[in-house]
Design a protein around this nucleic acid. Structure first.
Lengths: 290, 290
DNA sequence: CTGAAAGCGCTTACAG
DNA sequence: CTGAAAGCGCTTACAG
């Protein structure tokens, strides 16, 4: 007891680095996010953290800052830090780096990768289904000229586009009308909104894009939702802040984080086979779709 | 070379934990944030990261999740992880834990602490000056009945209230009228907006509070800014998303992050005396103040 | 210049 | 039950 008191008095703290070296485990889970400023990512990480507590694990976060190289470097760095498991909330990491990492510790990717990495588990949201659900909602409200506006050619956006195309095809509505804001956004928006055959509804690949469409419409005096219905994707905070509030597709981010942690735990318990889970999104109807 | 090739082929990676043990340094800076979902915190951390790169340091992030105990525990954990320096983007850590940490590695707190911790450097924004600047702006626009609405009694909010009180006093405007949303927000807003002596302008302790005031006003048919000017604080993304867009007080978050990293670097170079820096905010005038 | 030894701060298995 | 030794995977200082 006197020894312990003396240690406390001197401010002694056990060196976790040395402990990790001998125990071969750090009790650390690494979480890498494309962009922490994006609330979607911080919510997923919140879910990971809450679940990690139950396993006696701490979550250290690496911030990718929307830079693919930085994200891939974090994968390497986390393995060097000897994390016991790694959750990559990003589709931007190099598959080869992920496969290498998976040889050292269990790895779960949250997001739709361009290609699978060996021995890496994954969680994706059903983007095809979510986008189709949004389009069906617009069709139910009587819309027949529905455009898809996208700012990305990442796999998630492509899957949403596919869901859009599928749903307009099955409803015998318009021919698919896809507008990309990637190059000249102002011009693309002008072509979309100033033409004679203006759509009556727009599905956007995410909330940010949806808000850009809404702003462009309001600038032209086009009323939302009366003259143009707009639906976003991701249900970020901005969806309930803008006026009119934005109808959007929601994903259970907290739940996704918990699941990612649970999948790591299964690996700790000995699972050897890959596991790939698809999560179902849900439509949140607000003002922008009438 | 053949040995290196073989190591590569086997996927060998140097064990950073072992290296850290012998070198006595991890090349890691810990960054702890109250709430990563808050863009203010993720911007500061972005600034830290950009500056850390130049020093060959990596930034690991601990997420406080708005839980004071969790934040304090992260301070302990980061020291156990042997970070070379620690930046706490939060005012919620226990001063005693910070002082203990500072005995092991340089520590910089970004935020206004209720009390100073020994050997801990700090960066605060001039909240008194920022709030006074906002009030003077409203006075210039002719307002004489200006209220301060706050949702917090944390030191930053208190300093902003002080700045408000100082500025209304010097302008010979109204007597200070402070409204707290801490207990019964709906009732407090009703008292503020439904009374006969309704203010013509409101300064809020932050943007979230400002948006709540704006929404409450719009619900009552009170036009912003014509019948009620509203000014926020922090210049979060939501300030430019709401309609009317929000006049607010901006802090150079990226710059604050860089400075925090620079202050750590000074400690690495041998600085022994405490350093406390105050950053000047700036007013961003938008639609909500007319 | 090369190679083996000592040691970073712990935990664990073992001898006393 | 207590105490000393071995060893985790590296780096560094030193002997050859």
């Amino acid at each position: 007891m006197r020894i312990i008191d003396a240690a406390d008095a001197l401010g002694y703290r056990s060196n976790a680095v040395a402990r990790a070296l001998v125990q071969g485990r750090t009790a650390l889970v690494g979480a890498i996010a494309t962009d922490l400023a994006n609330p979607y990512h911080s919510e997923v990480i919140g879910g990971i953290e809450r679940a990690a507590g139950a396993h006696g694990l701490e979550v250290v976060i690496g911030h990718g800052q929307r830079d693919p190289r930085r994200i891939t470097r974090w994968v390497d760095r986390m393995i060097e830090l000897n994390v016991d498991g790694l959750i990559v909330v990003s589709s931007w990491a190099e598959p080869s780096a992920l496969a290498l990492a998976a040889a050292a510790a269990p790895v779960v990717v949250v997001g739709r990768m361009p290609q699978q990495a060996r021995d890496v588990d994954s969680i994706v949201s059903d983007d095809v289904g979510g986008a189709a659900m949004a389009v069906r909602h617009l069709i139910e409200r009587g819309h027949r000229r529905i455009a898809f506006v996208t700012s990305s050619d990442r796999p998630a956006a492509m899957a949403r586009q596919l869901g859009y195309e599928t749903a307009v095809a099955e409803a015998d509505a318009n021919v698919p009308h896809v507008v990309s804001l990637a190059d000249d956004a102002a011009r693309a928006l002008a072509a979309l909104l100033d033409g004679r055959e203006r759509p009556t509804a727009v599905l956007a690949n995410n909330d940010v894009t949806a808000v850009r469409v809404m702003d462009a419409a309001l600038d032209r005096g086009i009323r939302v939702p009366d003259q143009l219905a707009v639906v976003g994707y991701d249900n970020t905070v901005m969806a309930s802040l803008v006026r009119p509030t934005l109808t959007t597709v929601d994903q259970p981010n907290d739940e996704i984080g918990r699941l990612a942690m649970a999948m790591l735990a299964e690996r700790f318990e000995g699972r050897r086979v890959e596991r790939h889970v698809t999560i179902s999104p849900a439509l949140v109807v607000r003002g922008s779709s009438g």
